[in-house]
Design a protein around this nucleic acid. Structure first.
Lengths: 208, 208
DNA sequence: TCAGTAATTATGCAAGCGTATAATTAGCCT
DNA sequence: AGGCTAATTATACGCTTGCATAATTACTGA
């Protein structure tokens, strides 16, 4: 008679969070196929059966994890908005630097993003989250671009097109930073992003 | 005694190609988890055991499929290179338009790419293919950029940085074209790409 | 034409998967 | 203090997976 494993009762909220965190960790490290119920339970310090108690199905757990991830990412890039300088040019410049540097741009985030991208075409809920976060980020960028242009009195530019292009530029740099981190010198992507935006907007953005 | 399934011997080359094509189809439709050996064999019109005859492991098959996909993508954007005008500006312009339009930019390709991106950080063979194709594309772009700049005698620019930024821009547009195809008007991305490059390079690229 | 051989099918296995369900126990309420 | 209940563990089932191996058969070439 081996004794039954002792356990602690933790609040529902904390348990769900722990399970979600374990799920994200595993997906980031080993891809979706690494996030088995047994592995998740092990990582979260519980037994597999408990997952069923909080999530009707594993799919539910993964969906919940995806939502936490995405809102976390957008909040992370919004969080520092308050700390940015008031001057629109410096503000934009630091925003760009942020977007292509850790912790925003790191292999874990990119891996998680790639994993979720796969689900976007096939899962309606996922697509809505993707759409919302993509547009949210782009709109914020567009606003900053408009302010930056306004410093030199240019108010008639096609800021939508500039935001789409700028957003794409950041996305591409962000992905490569995560996928091939060793291909770029320290700070190289930061500098490239700022220089590219300077030319894209015909502005002289300051480099940190 | 049910009779054994009749079969035809097909050349090794054709079989491998069929298996790879089936693999890509399945991944594109249902993600990597849909590409089981049994499903692949079924789609390719053979029995599962045959896969082992051509690929030591399923991982090998997936890696081979990834390589076919990526070289196919770069070749698709290079294919029309021969038909492109000689004038470096028009040439670059049409190259850009190609990269963000079908068949290069379409949901299937983007879905496949996203699936493979997941494996890149964890699989040495995948990373090598990704690296090679990424650098191959970027180098081609860098060469075209250099030629375009040379038309106005500008030979001292940092073409490496411009190619990295330009490549990122194209990647980002390509991804969004595939992920959210309904968010952009017909030809909008094409126009955005050309305008953005014009400003990035301080050149006047012609729009088709 | 027919024997040899490599390509292909058929069968089976061990491991891991998600999930269902029953047994236990920690912590709260009175 | 001591029962109630929900949180947690334990066990087991049915499926699917990748892979190994044996049996067959279509083609080749002498």
């Amino acid at each position: 008679m081996t004794p039954r494993r002792p356990f602690q009762r933790v609040g529902e909220e904390a348990r769900r969070a722990a399970l979600i965190e374990a799920t994200l960790d595993l997906i980031a490290e080993g891809g979706p196929q690494a996030a088995t119920v047994r592995a998740i339970a092990l990582r979260a310090g519980v037994t597999p059966g408990l997952i069923r108690h909080y999530f009707a199905t594993k799919e539910d757990l993964v969906a919940a994890a995806h939502e936490v991830l995405m809102t976390g990412l957008t909040e992370a890039s919004a969080a520092r908005l308050g700390e940015l300088p008031d001057d629109p040019l410096s503000r934009l410049s630091e925003f760009l630097a942020n977007a292509v540097s850790p912790p925003v741009a790191d292999p874990r985030s990119v891996a998680l993003w790639a994993a979720s991208m796969q689900l976007v075409p096939r899962d309606e809920a996922m697509r809505r989250v993707h759409e919302a976060t993509y547009l949210g980020f782009r709109d914020r960028l567009e606003a900053m671009i408009a302010e930056a242009l306004a410093t030199t009195g240019r108010r008639d530019e096609d800021t939508r097109a500039l935001a789409i292009a700028g957003n794409a530029l950041l996305d591409g740099l962000w992905i490569e930073a995560g996928a091939l981190p060793d291909h770029f010198r320290e700070g190289e992507l930061k500098s490239i992003a700022i220089k590219a935006f300077s030319r894209l907007l015909s502005l002289d953005l300051p480099e940190g």
